[in-house]
Amino acid sequence: METLLNPLLQPLIQPLEMLFMQRALAIGVVVAVVCAVLSCFMTLKGWALMGDAVSHAVLPGVVIAYALGLPFALGAFVFGVGSVGVIGGIKQHTRVKEDTVIGLVFTGFFALGLVLISKIRSSVDLTHILFGNLLGITDADLVQTVVISVGCLLVLLLWRRDLLLFCFDPSHARTIGLNTGVLHYLLLTLVSLAAVAGLQTVGIILVVAMLVTPGATAYLLTDRFDRMTWLAVLSAVSATVLGIYASYWLDASTAGCIVVVQTLQFLLVMVWAPRHGLLAQRAARRSPGSGVQG
């Protein structure tokens, strides 16, 4: 029996014998879980562009925090939330449209981050920040990422009902006396922190994929929010594990592999999802009356 299974299991087990692979998988899964839960709120709120903006805008904050020996999370929080404040301010006081302002502000922040990295000349490796460095993660990074992830996850789970209400119907939230401003900035803070956590696995450029794709995939599979959350987590974790293995076997970019697997998952679901997939919708159109009409 053992000899029969061995050739099959060997490619799965052999990488696990290496410490860096164990760490990569562990940290990858932790980050995948928190980003996946957050991605459900992001897709429902329609905040993909905002997520992209915030995750890029944290770069100067991370670099400054690194240079000063402060936790990354602090720098990311200040610049992530700050960038949104700047976006809001410019939008309010000029005639420029919102998507233009978002595009302008986050690239500005990002560029500032690039300048800072090249001037500070520390041990920060630019490519590691931009594209992740999952296979070479340090102890300090590991601790920080786990602390951030667990913290975000706790907040998301405890306040999920308020956050869901905020995404669904901010008018009602306001009318029953909830502070929608606090919820708005809570969600933005979580995005900034998740961006720092995701920075370790897929890097700052691709982190938005972690914050959007699992939620979008799950959204096509169910009409229940709790199931959507579980499916997003399942999708993100499996994509991360598969991606890390793929990167090991193919000797290819880890971040690239993870996000490619995620995107493939989305494409599969988009076509074959039971009710909201393209094929199911086409079938429903052919036989009207079988589906539930709105």
């Binding site: 429902l44 009902r161 308020d162 869901l164 209400l165 995404c167 669904f168 119907d169 009602h172 939230a173 029953i176 909830l178 959204y219 169910t222 009409d223 229940r224 929010f225 199931r227 959507m228």
Partner: peptide
């Protein structure tokens, strides 16, 4: 939005 009728009405109690 992936939410049931029951959940919407429950939001009235939040």
């Amino acid at each position: 939005f992936p939410i049931r009728v029951w959940d919407v009405v429950m939001m009235g109690r939040y």
